[in-house]
Design a protein around this nucleic acid. Structure first.
Lengths: 206, 206
DNA sequence: ATTTACAAACCAAGCGCTTGCTTGGTATTG
DNA sequence: CAATACCAAGCAAGCGCTTGGTTTGTAAAT
């Protein structure tokens, strides 16, 4: 299943908003602004202007500003969980599965959904405690996909370190790429970057 | 030279503020608050209350709120650069040097200066462009220490991936520990965590 | 030893502005 | 002819920062 097919099926199930619809467009712009300026520095007037409406009109679609942030995060996790599952299904060996997960996460972070992913990482504290708990639940499903593969690799002897530590190190390392990786410059492609990560862990398929 | 000696010498040179002085105490509290609630959510009234003065009195010590954030960052980088240099001098082989750097950075992130380090990572965007440039200059010195060691390791054949990519991955991975590593729980010590990082890179000294 | 001088540190009050959000009413759409 | 989407206006609260004046610490002058 292609990335786009996955997105379409999630839209059909009403799990993520159509980026062409009013709600989806707002969420896309919100992710862009939240990433660019941070959640707190982005005003409801900024958000409204970005989609060409008055600030008060926002509150027809969302009850509070925070609800917008939460929606960005929730939809992003849903999409990514689906993308990761697809990546796993496409791979045979555990090594290939790990590569698929890394590649998919790098794509999420540095591709079209990158802004939303960066928001997920950097604006976490701006969520209220109750929203955090809600989002965390979704995240656990997502994290389990990684742990299963890493544990299998450890069982095979391909990995020395503890799976849960490795996953957390990878979370940090991959998220951080958003601050420095620029595909257009320097010629390092996403595949090349994935290779580098595997090489760093001495897990190249060669 | 012990950590404390390094700190004392920096204080003597007026490169970082004495944590017992008025300015130093404010910066410590500022780091704590900025990390806990984020820079934007922390008001000058919060900062003033944390050190027991009126909000207006803050502006005797700093011209703007942003200047406080910048001071936290600048002093943190200065201290860390000194700590890294000491870690390098204490090690013989390149492998041991890398381990020393990782160990020192983990200690910075998860030890007493951890709050300030987290601020450095997560509040970067809240700095004005000109302040960012200033801080970046200091950071370059710090980063060169890492690159030199990683390049030597690559020369030895102990490392496959590109040094500058590895450093960036490590930056992310190590910074991220601040969000999950809790020394008191689970029994993973800082040394144990350092071992895990080395193991993940297949660089254990064993 | 007391006085004088002065700067640094601080307080009390509040100004001007921006913020998230509300309200009451008007287009637009199926 | 509802329901949905929107606008115009503005409120209450909170923000960073300023102001004018008082206390405190220090050290030379008497």
């Amino acid at each position: 299943m292609s990335q786009n097919q996955i997105l379409q099926s999630l839209i059909a199930d009403n799990l993520v908003s159509d980026p062409n619809g009013a709600r989806g467009r707002l969420l896309t712009e919100a992710a862009r602004l939240f990433r660019e300026k941070g959640y707190e520095r982005t005003t409801v007037r900024d958000l409204a202007a970005a989609v060409g409406i008055q600030s008060g009109s926002l509150f027809h679609h969302f009850r509070t500003k925070e609800e917008i942030l939460k929606a960005v995060m929730v939809e992003t996790i849903r999409l990514n969980t689906a993308l990761m599952q697809a990546a796993l299904e496409a791979a045979e060996s555990n090594r290939a599965k790990l590569r698929g997960l890394i590649r998919a996460e790098l794509e999420s972070i540095n591709g079209q959904t990158g802004e939303a992913m960066a928001v997920l990482v950097f604006e976490w504290r701006s969520l209220s405690a109750s929203s955090q708990a809600e989002v965390l639940e979704l995240r656990d499903i997502y994290e389990k996909l990684w742990l299963d593969v890493l544990e299998s690799l450890k069982g095979e002897g391909a990995l020395e370190a503890e799976p849960f530590v490795v996953r957390r190190m990878l979370t940090g390392a991959l998220s951080w790429t958003v601050t420095w990786y620029k595909p257009e410059r320097g010629g390092l492609t996403l595949d090349g970057l994935t290779d580098q990560v595997m090489a760093m862990m001495a897990l190249e398929s060669s």
